[in-house]
């Protein structure tokens, strides 16, 4: 604890960097997954292609991506953009599956009814399909955000400043307190991200509280967990 107060500035600085670098992958994956998930439900072939691609991308170990991306992107190897791109690739890979499931979970009868009352394809997507897919999308996004925050610490191995620095430094100096503080702050950031996502979900989807969500939410959550 004494160490934490003495080094508060360092720890908070790293925590801020950590949080800042985690935001982009989560946002990118959410935005990219909506059209991709919708596409995956348009045809069998597209679904197979997109989900297989996501699966393959997800099998590449994070540190392997961190190291190879500079070669592909032409960036410097220690550039933090590599880590952001790598984590975005992961996040998208996980979210595509979640989003495909989310749009598949919208009842065909509801889609039929909305067409019958005169929704255009475009209006139906924004007014019916997306809001109803929302809860499942949120469940996947929560998994993605926690995983991203946790994985980001690996970035410190290739010299990007994140809370992972505390692991390396604490380990090299045989100082467990520093490692524990690094772990604690990583978990705290993950919890804050999760709370923010849940709050945004409550505000944007007030209808989820009216439904008997407990069992349904847990099933979708389980689906999200198995596939990630």
């Amino acid at each position: 604890m004494v160490w934490l107060w003495q080094n508060l500035e360092l720890v908070l600085g790293l925590a801020l960097d950590h949080a800042r670098l985690s935001v982009a992958p989560v946002l990118v994956s959410f935005i990219a997954s909506i059209p991709l998930g919708w596409l995956a439900n348009q045809s069998r072939v597209l679904r197979t292609i997109l989900l297989t691609l996501g699966g393959v991308l997800f099998t590449i170990p994070s540190i392997a991506l961190f190291v190879t991306l500079p070669v592909i992107l032409g960036t410097r190897i220690l550039d933090e953009i590599n880590v952001v791109v790598a984590l975005s690739i992961y996040a998208v890979a996980v979210m595509v599956r979640g989003s495909a499931d989310a749009f598949a979970s919208v009842s065909k009868d509801v889609i039929g009814s909305s067409t019958a009352v005169g929704y255009s394809r475009w209006g139906r997507f924004w007014g019916v399909e997306l809001p109803l897919a929302g809860p499942v999308l949120l469940a996947s996004l929560r998994v993605v955000s926690v995983t991203t925050v946790s994985l980001l610490s690996v970035g410190s191995l290739i010299g990007v400043t994140t809370l992972g620095y505390l692991f390396l430094d604490g380990y090299q100096r045989s100082f467990p307190t520093e490692v524990v503080i690094g772990i604690a702050f990583t978990v705290i950031i993950a919890l804050i991200f999760d709370a923010v996502l849940v709050t945004i979900g409550r505000i944007l989807m007030p209808y989820t509280r009216a439904l008997p969500t407990s069992s349904r939410a847990s099933v979708t959550r389980v689906a999200a967990e198995v596939t990630s």
């Binding site: 926690v146 946790s150 610490s153 992972g164 692991f167 390396l168 604490g170 045989s174 467990p176 847990s218």
Partner: peptide, 27 residues
């Protein structure tokens, strides 16, 4: 026990593996 296990798995996901490993090795 489903709710309990879901909570535990969520928490385990947030734990950074590298930090955990260094912590255990130090002891």
């Amino acid at each position: 026990g489903r709710a309990f296990v879901i909570a535990i798995s969520g928490a385990a996901r947030a734990l950074p593996t590298l930090g955990l490993l260094f912590f255990i090795v130090l002891f």
